[in-house]
């Protein structure tokens, strides 16, 4: 269970998140929708522990463990995974090296033994199969020269490899054509499990046709202004966000 309570966060003394409370039980998928600039990415960064953001009030707990006390790498080991809205290019670091380093760093923190080369390759083969990620792509430097779709698929691959408990997907659908969207959605759906939960951030309802959420929340100006079932996404698609922007103002 991920529990966010009255979360406030600033960047450079500008208040971005103004009291967010959310509970995402294990096994559930929640969606956050909201206009540009409402604080969706900020929320995802704060969950993952980015240090440029100052949490001024509130709490984040995963299975009762206080996340605000932990560094980004410790949160990753505790089970938080963030699929970035803009995946970062790391020139000169091969995809497989990166995955192996990350996986073994996490296993080490979790008190598990490091995977040897063979077991790692087996695992990788298994996870790449359905994501349409070629060996060639993994030999290249992380995200360098990747298309938008390749970058997003690569995020989902990392997610699958690192076996998280709670996944945040920040606009993983943006910039994807319908085929790429389906691949990504299938990848996420394949990971749905009783002991794993998801927070899917999106601007459009389209993604939610493929990843069916249990709950939908609307974020506007740093606050959750409405929560509901999957039908809320359709409502937003029709009416837009104007109503919420006025209410939140």
């Amino acid at each position: 269970m991920l529990k966010i309570n009255n979360l406030h966060a600033n960047i450079d003394d500008t208040k971005i998140l103004k009291g967010i409370s959310l509970e995402i039980p294990d096994g559930e998928v929640h969606a956050i929708m909201g206009p540009n600039g409402s604080g969706k990415s900020t929320l995802s960064y704060v969950l993952a522990g980015r240090e440029d953001y100052e949490v001024t009030e509130g709490s984040i707990a995963l299975d009762g463990i206080d996340m605000l006390e932990l560094s980004p790498e410790e949160r990753a080991a505790a089970g938080i995974f963030l699929a970035f809205q803009y995946p970062v290019e790391i020139p000169g670091v091969q995809g497989t090296t990166f995955l192996k380093t990350a996986l073994n760093a996490i296993r080490k923190q979790r008190g598990e033994s490091e995977l040897d080369a063979l077991d790692f390759l087996k695992l990788m083969k298994q996870k790449t199969k359905n994501l349409g990620i070629s060996d060639e792509m993994l030999k290249r430097a992380v995200n360098v020269g990747f298309s938008g779709g390749e970058k997003k698929r690569n995020e989902v691959l990392q997610m699958a490899m690192l076996d998280p408990k709670f996944c945040v997907l920040d606009e993983t659908d943006s910039g994807l054509d319908i085929d790429a969207l389906k691949i990504v959605a299938d990848g996420v759906n394949a990971m749905r499990a009783e002991n794993r939960s998801f927070l899917v951030i999106t601007h459009y309802q389209r993604l939610l046709d493929y990843i069916k959420p249990d709950k939908v929340h609307v974020l506007a100006k740093g606050r959750i202004v409405k929560s509901g079932g999957p039908e809320l996404a359709h409502e937003l698609e029709e009416k837009g966000y104007a109503e919420f922007l006025q209410e939140a103002a």
Binding site: S71, A76, I90, F98, A102
Partner: peptide, 26 residues
Amino acid sequence: PLFYLRSRGIPEDEARALLIQSFLGD
């Protein structure tokens, strides 16, 4: 990039080292 690597579980020192290697990889 440092945050990206750390968010994947890579400890800060190791992440820095990787990024320096990446810089020199050119």
